[in-house]
Amino acid sequence: MKINSEYKELAWQGLWKNNPGLVQLLGLCPLLAVTSTVVNAVGLGIATLFVLICSNATVSAIRQWVPKEIRIPIFVLIIAAFVTCVQLLMNAFTYDLYQSLGIFLPLIVTNCAIIGRAEAYASKNPIKQASFDGLMMGLGFLAVLMVLGSIREILGQGTLFDGANLLLGPWATALKVQVYQLDHQFLLAILPPGAFITMGFLIAGKNFIDSRIAEAKPKKLEQAIERVRVNFEN
């Protein structure tokens, strides 16, 4: 089926090939800042995922009525509105997590992954595909956040899922895993430079896997990657 393969391609692009975190390198600011624990990473990842799906769907729904000269301010307006709504909702329903994510929630607005997808994909495609693209890109971003958060939390604090109760309620305190005991926290892993270095290793790892795959089947032609920056001819 043609439609099926289209969705497959979108999933592949979002989760791996054109991953917003590892390949497009978008949204580095929140990515590096909040991934000190898995719970913070997942909290921000889910918030971003939600905003990405909503903004992609909305941008796609209104694409016929938006003149291309003023599309960017309109996209920014839509994204900012969704982020503010998410922020208010998290403040109301996950108060503790809202406090620990702090400044980084409003910063979702500046996450270029969102406006990047609005511009590159959602503004040219039907609602269904655009929402699916948002879902996949969001999941890809969430996955990178989670991996980065796990590595940093294990290296920095020797724990996993510390503070899960902030996200899931008091019962989740039991989810905390003490991987090993640390006398002092490993600061480099907790602070943003550690995130930057870990991120470098993750990207290297992805490129390594890709080159292995390419070696395994050298005859297959590389498909054109849809980039975030698109030049409009007209």
């Binding site: 307006l77 839509i78 900012a80 509105a81 503010t84 709504c85 208010l88 909702l89």
Partner: peptide, 8 residues
């Protein structure tokens, strides 16, 4: 957009 935010 402002109306939506206001409503939430």
């Amino acid at each position: 957009c402002t109306a939506a935010v206001g409503l939430v």
